[in-house]
């Protein structure tokens, strides 16, 4: 038995027939070929598969594609606009927030959920928000810095850019 679903992924509408047991992460990766979302532990622990479903951070290995019917989904591929990196992506780049990079898409999507609700999170709030995302390389230090970088940039985008341009 397959079920028809309509989902909006990174602004594009997709209509597909899927088996009910197809996990959302495999729908994104295998059907839509959006391989930026990773499968890490596959047991809802590590957070590498985190995406936004209707704006909420979601472990896509613990959701069926059929449950996402009529939902709006954002994956890491939907973060940059017109080739310009999202402040979080820029933060991870600038602050050396990744080493192997496997956890990065999930970290960024979870952090995006945090920054939507909390424009100026404290270090402690950032660490608490990322408790469902594992990183084996960085010791989390530079990930926290990357999120702080993005929070600063997003709360004062113009001033920051001018300053940076002036420095160049």
């Amino acid at each position: 038995m397959s079920t028809k679903i309509t989902v909006t992924v990174n602004g594009a509408k997709h209509i597909d027939k899927v088996e009910p047991r197809l996990l959302l992460v495999y729908y994104l990766r295998d059907v839509l070929k959006l391989t930026g979302t990773h499968v890490g532990c596959d047991t809802s622990s590590c957070g590498a598969c985190t995406i936004l479903v209707d704006g909420k951070a979601t472990k896509s290995c613990t959701m069926l594609a059929v449950q996402a019917d009529k939902c709006k989904i954002t994956t890491i591929e939907g973060m940059a606009t017109n080739g310009e990196l999202h402040p979080l992506q820029e933060g991870f780049n600038q602050c050396h927030g990744l080493q192997c990079g496997f956890c990065t898409p999930g970290m960024i999507m979870t952090a995006a959920d945090l920054l939507k609700n909390n424009k100026k999170p404290s270090e402690e709030q950032i660490r608490a928000a990322l408790e469902g995302n594992f990183c084996r390389c960085t010791g989390y230090h530079n990930i926290v810095k990357a999120v702080q970088y993005a929070a600063d940039k997003m709360s004062a985008p113009r001033a920051r850019k001018t300053k940076k341009e002036a420095a160049l």
Binding site: S44, G47, T50, K56, A57, T58, K59, T62, M63, T110, D113, L114, A129, E131, G132, N133
Partner: peptide, 9 residues
């Protein structure tokens, strides 16, 4: 409970 992602669902 769990983590942010778990609490969301």
């Amino acid at each position: 409970i769990g983590d942010v992602q778990v609490r969301n669902h």
